[in-house]
Amino acid sequence: MSDIQQYHYPKSSVSTQQGAVLIVVLLFLILIILAGVIAVKQSTTNLRLATSDQINALLLQSADNANQSIEQSINSDSESEIYQDMMSRTGVFGYFILDPDNIEHEYVFCFRPRGQFFDIKKTTIMLPGGGTVLGGKVGDEAAKGYCDISKPADYVSERNASMTQVNISLTPPNANDEAFSNYTIGQDSAEIASQAFTFDINSTAILPAYADAKVGTKNCFEQTSRVRSVTDSDNTIGGCMAKAGVPSTIVYEQANVENLSLRTKCVDFGKGSGKLCTLPSS
């Protein structure tokens, strides 16, 4: 009888192997999910940045367009219709230049570049005490200078994407200003046409589609642009828009404006009739 020894080898657990494979698969799934989440988040961030850049570019273009239109109009021929409107007694600049009592007022109009961008009959004068004066008939809603998001005509383009409101006021005097620096050499200081007036021009462009331009019952368009006149920044047009969550951009410009329509032009190197005129610098 042969002596045969039997060896018993340990049997591996099938359930244990299946559990190890499951853990490895789950780890791979977790890694894939994390990679997907990171990719989606990165794509979303890039999309937001691109959208933000587009919004900022559109708003800056809308606000700057208003300032450029004002500059071109006031530097144009003093006999043109738009110049006469802006320099008339009820115009955006003539209102201050021809009546010194209006120094603390603020002139408001909605920029409408698809027609004549400045309509003298659709303006609002904001008074220091909180009241207003309309450019048209008193109490006529259509005469208000504030932009209205419900009116397609108040948008910059037919896409009804952005709108721009312009607030203009006289620049407050500063102790550091040079004496008589705003007077023209060669002109009689008693004449209005000899003096240049300094204005603060604030053009506020917004995208109404992102949020309503109101905080409760307060219309942001009806707030002042004169930061010095309020104690709470939320009561300014820019601060109110920010609180309402409306994408907005304000372009501020300080401009010197002279009433050339009241001035006699120089001819033949200063030889003219009537009022003295500015002599050439060289």
Rank of each mutant, 00 (worst) to 15 (best):
Q5N: 13
Q6G: 06
P10C: 12
Q17L: 12
Q18G: 04
Q18P: 01
A20K: 08
V24K: 12
V24F: 14
V24P: 04
V24D: 06
V25Y: 12
L26F: 10
L27V: 11
F28C: 15
F28A: 14
L29R: 13
I33A: 11
L34K: 10
I38S: 15
T44P: 03
T45E: 13
L47P: 04
R48W: 05
A50P: 00
T51P: 03
S52G: 07
Q54N: 14
N56H: 11
L58E: 13
L60E: 14
L60M: 14
S62N: 08
A63E: 03
D64N: 12
N65G: 14
N65W: 06
I70W: 01
I70V: 14
Q72V: 08
I74T: 12
D77S: 15
D77E: 15
S78M: 08
E79P: 03
E79I: 14
I82H: 09
Y83M: 09
Q84M: 09
D85E: 15
V92R: 00
Y95F: 13
F96M: 05
L98Q: 07
D99P: 04
P100S: 08
P100W: 07
H105W: 03
E106M: 06
Y107K: 06
F109K: 06
C110P: 00
F111V: 02
R112V: 01
P113Y: 05
Q116P: 08
F118R: 02
K121L: 12
T124D: 13
T132A: 11
V133N: 08
G136W: 03
G136E: 03
K137H: 12
G139E: 05
G139W: 03
I149N: 02
P152R: 04
P152S: 11
A153C: 09
A161N: 12
T164Y: 03
S169D: 04
L170N: 01
P173L: 13
N174H: 13
N176L: 13
F180L: 13
F180A: 12
N182P: 06
S189N: 11
E191H: 02
A193S: 06
F199N: 02
D200V: 07
D200L: 09
I201W: 00
P208A: 05
A209T: 11
A211P: 06
K214T: 11
V215W: 02
G216E: 07
F221T: 00
E222D: 08
Q223G: 00
C240I: 00
C240N: 00
C240W: 00
K243A: 05
S248A: 15
S248K: 02
I250Y: 03
V251S: 08
E253P: 01
V257F: 02
N259P: 00
N259Y: 01
R263I: 11
C266Q: 02
P280Q: 07
S282Q: 10
